[in-house]
Nucleic acid binder design. Structure first.
Lengths: 221, 221
DNA sequence: TTAATTATCTACTCTTGGTTAAGTGAATAA
DNA sequence: TTATTCACTTAACCAAGAGTAGATAATTAA
């Protein structure tokens, strides 16, 4: 009865994956609404409707759980930029404004899909604090990703300038400014939302206004 | 010997003030370099070269110590905006660019005076987290200040638009965007500085680049 | 049915960090 | 000199929260 044993193994694997999925989804919920520091393993366990030690069966530390959530998001982010880079390469942009729009879209896409995920990038990139909290190895992976994303963003901007889509500004400063705008705005909006829920909807409007401002300032066509 | 007693009282008062000053300066150092959460009373005490309970002689809680540092900064900030409002009122601005410049200056002035103080505004405004950490009463004072600063900023922008200095954009979105840019940029720069000290100098350049971008986008003259 | 394995839970441990109680010692007053 | 005050310290308290040891229940294999 090899088949039987195998079938059972399969089911066990599925259940295990489900448990992991459940933990991740609970963790996402809590981390995204409270940030890293204020999130407790107890609360994640409660949300996942399991006991705390069970979490430790699947994730060695709080850190590891957190970065299991972050990395896919960061990777998605990187992919968006790669797509823009590819389109640039293939002369896919006629107007600078379309390019600026895509840059913003890369950032906000995930937000539209799942409003919480933007907060990740938030808690993630912004908290210089947080970075220091994480373990050495976790930090290494994370800052490597961050470095690559920043580097990619700069290349994309440089290339867009070379093609006459945007003004020729220092790509270092420019990418910092764009990141800063996006992160800062979502933060400010988050603060407002915290005080007075329901406001979150304004974020999209504000970001699109920011997009126009940036386009007015740097797009050449 | 009334005089004598009085003189002693004076000296005691001076010493007390000195102690408070020492605590505040130690707290500033630690809070600004680590942020609210990661700062411990033990470290402040160590930095101030006194024992921990001594701090509690002068400040009832960690909160109170923190807000004793924040408020003066916020007030300075508000004053800057009031000055701009007054200049606007007196038709002191000939060009939109000068106005945009002053808005940025209001923010960066404190930075030039004391590089640390910008971080305060940072840890302060940005951490939606932090806000939730503070006690009810502390939070009340703080968000009241924040609310007033935001309100003032909006009025200033509206008025500048009415006078034809800048484009007529939604002042709510615009002030969020400006705040977001400034905060976000300083954050991004902070992260960089953390990784590789000495970079902090770039902040000024980047901010001035951001100023140009904003001016290109919204200034009408 | 029974032994072995596996997943999960209850009930801890251990550390950190804010806060406090109680006492010490120097300066001041009588 | 002696009592009092006051700043300050030592040595705790206590709650929160990350992580773990050992019991327990369920599931599978024989």
């Amino acid at each position: 009865m090899h088949k039987h044993r195998e079938a059972i193994q399969n089911r066990k694997k599925r259940e295990k994956d489900q448990r992991i999925e459940g933990i991740l989804s609970a963790a996402k919920k809590v981390f995204f609404s409270k940030g890293y520091q204020k999130t407790t393993m107890d609360e994640i366990a409660f949300e996942a409707e399991i006991s705390k030690p069970t979490i430790y069966q699947y994730f060695r530390t709080k850190d590891e759980l957190y970065s299991a959530l972050m990395l896919p998001f960061l990777e998605e982010f990187g992919r968006s930029f790669e797509a823009i880079a590819a389109r640039l390469e293939g002369k896919g942009y006629k107007r600078g404004r379309a390019f600026v729009k895509d840059i913003f879209r890369a950032f906000t896409r995930s937000y539209e899909a799942a409003p919480d995920s933007l907060r990740v990038a938030n808690t993630f990139f912004q908290h210089a604090d947080l970075i220091g909290e994480l373990s050495e190895s976790t930090r290494a992976v994370i800052s490597e990703r961050g470095r690559r994303d920043f580097e990619l963003a700069r290349q994309v901007l440089r290339s867009a300038a070379a093609r006459g889509l945007i003004r020729n500004k220092d790509p270092y400063a420019l990418s910092d400014i764009i990141w800063g705008m996006l992160l800062g705005i979502t933060q400010v909006m988050d603060m407002k939302a915290a005080k007075q829920p329901g406001r979150a909807a304004f974020l999209k409007t504000t970001l699109s206004e920011a997009e126009k401002i940036l386009a007015d300032a740097i797009a050449l066509s």
